[in-house]
Computed example of a mutant assay.
Amino acid sequence: MPDPVPDPVSVQPVVAPVTSAALFLVGTVEPGGEKAVRDVLPDLAAVARSLGFRYPDAGLACVAGFGSSAWDRLFSGKRPPHLRPFPELRGPRHHAPSTPGDILLHIRADRADLCFAWAAQLLDKLGGAVRIVDETHGFRYLDHRDLLGFVDGTANPVGGAAREAAIVGADDPDFEGGSYVVVQKYLHDLTSWNALTVEEQERVIGRTKLDDVEFPDDEKAADSHLALNTIVENGAERDIVRANMPFGSFEQGEFGTYYIGYAADPGVTEQMLRNMFLGKGAGSHDRILDFSTAVTGSSFFAPRADFLDSPPPPPGPRAG
């Protein structure tokens, strides 16, 4: 039997199996911290290999991404053509804010302690070069449900379709193997949500709650979550890969979903968000936003793994 054709590029574990735990860290690079960040990039894979070797069944996977302004501070040469700041959206009723984010670290494993250990080693190496502006510890809830009680991730593509949706292809050889990432933190008003009947909740989502069956298109409400998040171009549905996780704090009284979407084309993700917040057709906005408030929003590019192992030179001094 012939050997499998090797992957032409080394990709970060963007399309990774669902795990029981995740740690999302968004940070800003402090003035003068660029060299420390660049110096630590080749260590990302080494730290993951060290922990992964000792705990091979834990499914440890780590992805690093960089925001638009940070990219220009860290790397010379070409930049990802579609990397841009998160587009703030102000709809008639709901707002998607754009919040600071130079670096994204998406760490996942079947053990929360390994997520913590990976982050601790990396942040120790970074010292004060990066300031963490958002830290979210996610967990798998029951049978892959969000805290609204619905299964999350059912519509994700799988296999080759997932890779095609999430990973930049050969049409962009400079950044092939990378992925555009959008993250948002949503806080749920569970009191108002749980006051709805199950049937009303199902209308908001466009899917049954107990057995996770999607409504036929002609039965979905125009402002349902699934109706507004389905993007069709030239007769074909455009997909992204979501790795959302629930999170919560009883002390702070905050419960929500950490949304993270990987895409080969960030325009697909951005169109979904425009539909949600600004509306489309008969749907004035995504009804889920009446119960879930976006409090963060940042965009990143996660380059291929060999880019991190040997990044391009730093940018030269800017003309005064």
Rank of each mutant, 00 (worst) to 15 (best):
Thr257Ile: 06
Ala21Asp: 13
Gly101Asp: 03
His82Ile: 04
Ala96His: 05
Asp146Asn: 14
Glu202Leu: 06
Asp152Gly: 05
Gln201Glu: 14
Leu114His: 02
Leu147Gln: 10
Ala319Lys: 11
Gly127His: 03
Asp306Tyr: 00
Val181Trp: 01
Cys115Asp: 11
Ala236Met: 10
Ser10Asn: 07
Gly128Phe: 00
Ala96Leu: 15
Pro4Lys: 02
Asp174Thr: 08
Phe139His: 11
Tyr55Ile: 00
Ala112Pro: 10
Thr269Cys: 06
Val213Gln: 15
Asp102Leu: 05
Asp143Arg: 08
Pro6Asp: 05
Val40Lys: 01
Leu23Phe: 05
Gly256Asp: 08
Val29Asp: 06
Leu89Asn: 06
Pro317Trp: 11
His225Gln: 08
Asp223Ser: 13
Tyr262Lys: 00
Asn234His: 07
Ile132Pro: 00
Ile288His: 03
Ile107Ala: 10
Arg140Ala: 15
Phe301Glu: 04
Leu122Trp: 12
His285Arg: 13
Ser179Asn: 04
Lys78Cys: 12
Met272Asp: 07
Pro315Lys: 02
His285Trp: 14
Ala58Ser: 14
Thr197Gly: 15
Ala46Ser: 13
Pro6Cys: 02
Gly33His: 08
Phe215Met: 14
Lys78Asp: 15
Leu89Met: 09
Gly149Ile: 13
Arg38Phe: 00
Asp171Lys: 03
Ser20Tyr: 04
Pro85Glu: 13
Ser192Asn: 06
Ile107Val: 15
Pro317Asp: 14
Val232Thr: 09
Val151Leu: 11
Pro13Glu: 08
Val14Trp: 02
Asn229Leu: 04
Gly160Ser: 07
Val158Leu: 08
Asp218Leu: 08
Phe139Met: 14
Ala64Asn: 11
His106Tyr: 15
Ala166Trp: 01
Asp146Thr: 09
Pro85Ser: 11
Gln12Met: 10
Glu237Trp: 00
Asp146Gln: 04
Arg238Gly: 02
Gln271Val: 01
Leu23Arg: 13
Gly91Phe: 05
Leu147Tyr: 07
Gly316Val: 07
Arg79Asn: 08
Gly178His: 03
Pro6Val: 02
Gly283Val: 14
Pro6Met: 02
Leu187Pro: 03
Glu200Val: 04
Phe300Ala: 05
Pro173Lys: 04
Arg318Gly: 15
Ala36His: 02
Trp193Ile: 11
Thr230Pro: 03
Val15Asp: 10
Ala263Leu: 01
Val204Trp: 01
Val11Pro: 01
Glu199Ala: 14
Ala21Trp: 07
Val295Ala: 03
Gly32Glu: 10
Cys115Lys: 07
Gly320Ala: 15
Glu270Lys: 00
Leu44Glu: 09
Phe150Ser: 12
Glu135Asn: 04
Ala263Thr: 01
Val47Pro: 01
Ser284Gln: 15
Phe175Asn: 06
Arg304His: 05
Arg73Phe: 01
Leu190Asp: 02
Arg111Trp: 09
Gly153Phe: 05
Asp110Met: 07
Leu74Lys: 06
Gly169Gln: 04
Phe307Trp: 15
Val14Lys: 05
Asp102Phe: 01
Gly206Trp: 01
Pro317Leu: 12
Leu41Cys: 09
Phe277Ile: 13
Gln12Asn: 10
Leu74Met: 09
Gln252Ala: 15
Phe139Asp: 09
Glu254Thr: 12
Arg93Phe: 12
Leu308Cys: 07
Gly267Gln: 05
